[in-house]
Structure formats: structure tokens, C-alpha cells
Amino acid sequence: MKQTRRAVLRGLAGVTVAGPVVAAPFIARAEAMWPAKPVTIVVNFPAGGLTDGIARAFGQAVQQATGQQVIIDNRPGASGNIGAAQVARANGDGYTFLHTVSSTLVQNRAMFKNLGFDPDKDFVLVSGMSSGVLPVVVHKSVPVTNLKELVAYAKTNKVNFGSWALGSSAHILAQHLNEKFGLSMEIVTYKGEAPMWQDMGAGSLQAAMGSPQAMNALLVKGEIRPIAAPSRVRAGKLPDVPTTIEQGFTDDAFVVRGWLGLAAPAGTPKEVVKRMSDLWVAAADSEPGRRMMESFGLTEKPMPHEEVTADYETLKASLIPMIVALGIKPE
């Protein structure tokens, strides 16, 4: 009996040892076959803005390259937290991704008491691309042509300043203007750019900030007037608009830097992350990718997985203290 029992135990041990050996090639084959079914990219802002436009164009390129359908699922709300939380809870099997802005993963942690997810633990960054220059504009009824004139105007007139999300670069810039110059501009937060520009066209906002393409219809109609490019370089689509630095606004809050990020749930296989990163970077050179980047005035190519992961740490170190310093209370 003892020998029999030992034999049984040896047999069970053999099964235990053999399990991973057998499973490893199977897992490797499954990852090599990726994608074997449709891929969903959750966009945590409404259709019509920069985040959505790039996701759709790049998703089309990924679909063309892999032969598998790429589904764009818009889940706006709570400054991007609703869509991000949905992806954070998804299986890390390589078939669900999040396309978002850096503020969702960086600024929001200082803006909300409960995000519904952990930006650092629940995601792995796949790729990231500079969101480009996001001009500050005013409604045609506001008689100003530069940022200094807007400050002077806001001291004696009511100004509603549009922001596409709580804690966004637009929010930071407007809040810093309030703090630095003793203004009381009302910062109006939206679920994305599209509804913000609708209100701007209706005249309920006096100022706002966002992507050139998303505001283009209002620019063409003459409903809005660009007054500053909060960047170190001028906007390619609006080369005559001076930067904030050129206008003497040199504080870090007036020089916007951020990116559009593609992320996957934590636990997504490294091989899949690498493959999707390569596909996303290559999408910038595809026909739909080039057209969309040109329409939004974007010139910088996407960063691969390793690069955006390192830049994420840099962004956190610079932006989080900035929000804390502005005294914005978490909701």
C-alpha cells in the first residue's frame, strides 16, 4: 500500500509539473493568433471630438491590418471615469482597450475622491500620441483678440469658460487664470468636446479651449475667434495665433502638454500589448490615420508601449502637483 500510495503521489506530481509545460505552448499559440475575434475600443468621451476621431481612424487601420473588426464603443461621463472603469473591469484577454486622454489617468486622481479604478494598477499603457496644440478661443461677441485682453474683459464681465472634462488642460488653464489674476470665470465642465462646442456656437460660453478640428465648423462660420495657443509652438492649423509664451504667459499651467492614450486592462499578455502597440504606431502612416491627423493638425507620431509608459511617470510628476497647488477640491 505504501508503494502504491507513493506511486499515486508521484503520478499526481507528474501531472502538476506537466500542466504548465503543456499550457505554455497553448497560451503562446493563442497569443500568436491574436486577434482571433472582434476587438472593442472603449472611448470614454462622446463621438465628434479628438479622442473619438483618432480612435476611429486608427481602429480602421488596425482592422485593415488584422482582418478583424474593431468596434468603437463610446462611454462618456464623469470626466472619462465611466468608460475607464468599464475597461478596468474587463478581462485582460486582448480584446478590450481604452482610448482616452492623459487627464483620465493623471489629473482625475486629484479631481475625484473615488475614480472607480486605479490608474496605475488597473491598466497597462499600449501607446500614446501628443494631443497637439489646443487653442483658446472666444465667442464672436467677446471683444478681445489675445489672452491679456481676455483677462481684462473677465474682470468686469461674466465669462463662462468651457472645459471638455473636469481636471482637463482647459480646466487647469482657466483655473490658473482665475487664481493668478483674481478673476471669477465660471468653468463649465462637459462630457467631451462635441457638446462644449455646441454651447459655444449657441453663445452660452464666452471662452473655451480644444482641438482645431472639433471647433473647425465654428471657425469657418466666424462664430469664434482664436486668441492663444497654449503651447511652445503655434498650431499648424492656426499659424497666425501667438502662443501663450509669446504673449507673456509663461507659467507651466499655460503651456499645455498631454496625450491621447491607448490602454489595456492589467494582465493583458505582453505579446498582445506589443502587437497592438506596433499596430497603433503604424496606424499613423495609414491612409485613414494620416487623414485624421492632418484634420486635427497633429504632427507627432504615436509613442510605443515603452516610451509612453515612461512619459506617463513624467506627466504625473508635473501635473498632479499643479492641480493640488490650484486648490481644486476633489468631487
Rank of each mutant, 00 (worst) to 15 (best):
K237L: 15
K237I: 05
K237M: 10
L238R: 04
L238T: 02
P239Y: 04
P239H: 09
D240R: 07
D240F: 09
D240I: 14
V241R: 00
P242A: 10
P242Q: 08
P242G: 09
P242D: 05
P242T: 05
T243K: 07
T243N: 06
T243R: 03
T243Q: 04
T244H: 01
T244Q: 02
T244S: 12
T244W: 03
I245W: 08
I245D: 14
I245V: 15
I245R: 10
E246K: 05
E246C: 15
E246Q: 05
E246W: 02
Q247Y: 03
Q247H: 03
G248L: 01
G248H: 11
F249W: 04
F249V: 00
F249N: 01
F249S: 07
T250M: 06
T250G: 04
T250H: 11
T250I: 04
T250P: 04
D251F: 07
D251E: 05
D251C: 08
D251I: 14
D251H: 14
D251V: 06
D252M: 12
D252T: 14
A253L: 14
A253T: 14
F254R: 02
F254I: 07
F254S: 04
V255G: 01
V255I: 15
V255L: 12
V255K: 13
V256H: 13
V256Y: 15
R257E: 13
G258R: 02
G258S: 05
G258C: 02
W259A: 10
W259Y: 09
W259K: 06
W259L: 11
L260D: 12
L260S: 13
L260H: 13
G261P: 13
G261E: 10
G261H: 09
L262N: 02
A263T: 05
A263R: 08
A263D: 00
A263G: 10
A263L: 01
A264L: 01
A264V: 03
A264I: 02
P265S: 07
P265H: 02
P265Q: 03
P265F: 00
A266T: 02
A266G: 04
G267F: 07
G267Y: 05
G267A: 09
T268R: 05
T268M: 00
T268H: 00
T268I: 12
P269E: 02
K270P: 06
K270E: 10
K270N: 11
E271W: 10
E271Q: 14
E271G: 14
E271F: 08
